[in-house]
């Protein structure tokens, strides 16, 4: 004899399990579908990046990039082949047109989301990549177009990578790892690889970022020593490998060593502003510009807070206090001591 409560409970359990869309089974299948989609898109992204950079994508390289077993990768690729996304022949993978479009969309979504985080939120730099890795699979092509418009259709993401325009191809990564840079020659750091996250965090903590000029002056004892941003940096080759450079013709090492920043300006000194660093973004950049921190402006140190930070600067007739890490973003030149009789100006 089966009691009524038993049947009712059974019914409730069945509803909880099998109700369309919100039931446990439906959710589980949805999650699996999403996971498959993520793996598929990540594999496409990997193949695309290999192709544009002249590397050969293989089953093994896909398995490595996605951190999955070879068998699972083979399964995934077979499925993708069946869907007309890739072709697998002679051990190498090739993208087919739908696959290429999807891969480009994912790269675009990723880089746009990173730009969004950099420009319009206060999310810490170290989190950008991680968040974008998730978001890239959620944005539809319409979403990315709207996002791009909202950001003013940026051409580069905050790491210095090109954001492929709608329908355009992904350009090859230019530049070489910093390890390979020649000694005593100024170069421009064009890109910082944001994976693995631990390495990226270390590099970022040093204040290194795309757009910084660097000059290596020694590669000894497993250390790469170089000058950048008015300071000496020391990196292990493993770290330096994650930095990419392009040559910087027309700049001498002296130019680089002579580079000075507002944070170095002492009380009683003044200097002409040369530019704002690329690391200064979004609301903060616009605010500094509005306050009159534009290239060509004379800046003089007016007061230093009793705690040593912030420092108040006289800019275009007004006294504005900036924190040290902000002053570090402002490049200056023509540093000089203020003559006594005009000190009050």
């Amino acid at each position: 004899m089966i009691s009524l409560p038993f049947i009712v409970s059974l019914l409730i359990i069945a509803v909880l399990l099998f109700w369309p869309d919100v039931g446990v089974v439906a959710r589980w299948r949805e999650a699996r579908r999403r996971a498959l989609r993520v793996r598929r898109e990540d594999a496409l992204k990997h193949v695309l990046k290999c192709e544009v950079n002249g590397q050969v994508p293989t089953l093994n390289s896909v398995a490595g990039a996605l951190h999955i077993r070879d068998g699972k990768a083979a399964e995934l690729l077979a499925d993708m082949e069946a869907h007309g996304l890739v072709t697998l022949g002679e051990g190498r993978l090739r993208l087919r047109q739908p696959g290429r479009e999807l891969a480009l969309h994912v790269v675009r979504a990723h880089r746009l989301w990173e730009s969004y985080l950099a420009e319009q939120t206060g999310v810490a730099e170290a989190k950008w990549h991680h968040l974008a890795e998730r978001k890239e699979h959620q944005l539809s092509p319409e979403d990315t177009i709207a996002l791009a418009a909202r950001l003013g259709n940026p051409l580069q993401d905050p790491h210095g990578d090109t954001i492929p325009a709608e329908g355009a191809d992904l350009p090859a990564d230019i530049g070489q790892p910093l390890n390979a840079a020649p000694l005593d020659t100024p170069v421009l750091i064009s890109h910082i690889e944001d994976e693995p996250e631990a390495v990226y965090k270390q590099i970022q903590a040093l204040g290194l970022r795309p757009g910084v000029k660097a000059c290596i002056f020694s590669k000894e004892n497993g250390c790469i020593r170089f000058w950048a941003d008015g300071r000496e940096h020391v990196l292990t080759p493993i770290l330096a490998n994650n930095l990419t450079y392009v040559p910087l013709p027309g700049t001498t090492p002296e130019d680089l060593f002579d580079e000075e920043f507002l944070s170095e300006l002492q009380a009683g000194e003044r200097a002409r502003m040369l530019g704002l660093s690329t690391a200064c973004r979004g609301a903060e950049r616009r605010r500094l510009l509005d306050l009159g921190f534009v290239p060509g402006t004379m800046i003089e140190v007016d007061l230093v807070s009793p705690a040593g930070d912030p420092t108040a600067y006289r800019v275009r007739g007004t006294v504005i206090a900036l924190r040290r890490e902000q002053a570090r973003l402002i490049r200056i030149g023509n540093r000089e001591t203020i003559p006594m009789e005009t000190a009050a100006r």
Partner: peptide, 9 residues
């Protein structure tokens, strides 16, 4: 008037 340049912005 005493800080004209900034205000002209």
């Amino acid at each position: 008037a005493s800080r004209l340049e900034r205000n002209l912005n």
